[in-house]
Computed example of a mutant assay.
Amino acid sequence: MASVIGGEAAFIGSLTELIELNWSAVDAFAAALPRMSRSGDRSRLLSFLTDHEHHLDDLAALAHELGSPPLETPTRPKLKSKALTNGIVGDRAILEAMRCYEEETCAAYERTLLSREGLSDRARDALRQALAVERRHRDWFVEQLDARQGLMLLPL
C-alpha cells in the first residue's frame, strides 16, 4: 500500500488530475494522428499515445493501491481534444497544440512530485519515470517546431 504524508485524499486528487490529463492527451493524439501529413510524425505521435496509455495503467494501479477506484474515463469535458477537431490545420499548428498538452502534463507531474512528501518508493519512481517520458515528448515537439519555422495556418 502506498503511503502519503499529508493525506491520501490529496494524493488521490493529484492522481485524478494526472489521469484526466492523460485521457485528454490520448484523445488529442488520436485526433491529431490522421491530420499529420508526414508518416514519421504519425509514427512518433502513435508512440506518444501509447506512452500515455501506459501512464494511465500505472496511475490506475497507484490509485487502486490507495483504495480508490481508478477513473475509467475522463470526468471533465473533452474541450481540449475538440480543438484538434475544430479547425486546427497543418502539421505545425498540430505540433504546437500537442506541445501545449505535454507542457501541461509535465507541470502536473512536477507539482505532484514536489508537493507530496512521504510517497512510497514505487509511487515516486512511477511518477518520475512518467515525468521523464513527458519531458521527452515535450522536447521532441519543441525540436520539431524549431526545425519547422514558418507559417502556421489557422482558420479565419
Rank of each mutant, 00 (worst) to 15 (best):
L46C: 08
I19K: 01
A31H: 03
H137E: 01
W140D: 03
L156W: 04
A147S: 13
L127Y: 02
D51F: 02
A130K: 03
A63N: 05
A130F: 05
H54E: 06
T50F: 08
G7W: 08
L66D: 02
H52D: 01
L156F: 03
R136Q: 14
H54N: 11
F141D: 02
E8N: 08
G87N: 06
S24L: 04
A93T: 11
C106D: 07
A32N: 09
L46K: 15
D41P: 02
I5W: 06
F11T: 00
H52Y: 02
E65F: 07
M36Y: 14
D139Y: 00
R136E: 13
E72R: 10
P74K: 05
C106Y: 02
T75F: 07
L156T: 14
G150C: 11
H64Q: 13
T105C: 00
P77L: 11
R42H: 09
K82Y: 12
L156R: 14
L95A: 11
R148T: 14
G6P: 05
A108S: 14
V133Q: 12
P70Y: 03
I19N: 01
P74F: 06
L113G: 04
Q149C: 09
E110H: 00
A2R: 05
L79I: 07
L84F: 12
A132V: 04
G67C: 10
R44D: 04
R148I: 07
M98I: 06
L114Y: 03
H55Q: 03
F48H: 07
D41I: 11
N86T: 13
G90I: 03
G40S: 15
A132Q: 11
K82L: 14
L84H: 05
S120D: 02
R92A: 13
A147C: 03
G7H: 07
T105V: 08
G150E: 01
V26S: 04
R128G: 12
T85L: 06
S115Y: 00
L153T: 14
R148H: 14
D146L: 13
G7E: 11
V142N: 09
A83D: 05
R38P: 07
R148K: 13
T112H: 00
L95Q: 12
V89D: 06
E104C: 02
S24R: 00
A61P: 02
E117T: 05
R42W: 10
T112F: 00
P70C: 09
T85G: 13
Q129K: 11
E134F: 05
G13K: 08
V4F: 09
R122M: 08
E102P: 00
L113D: 07
E143H: 08
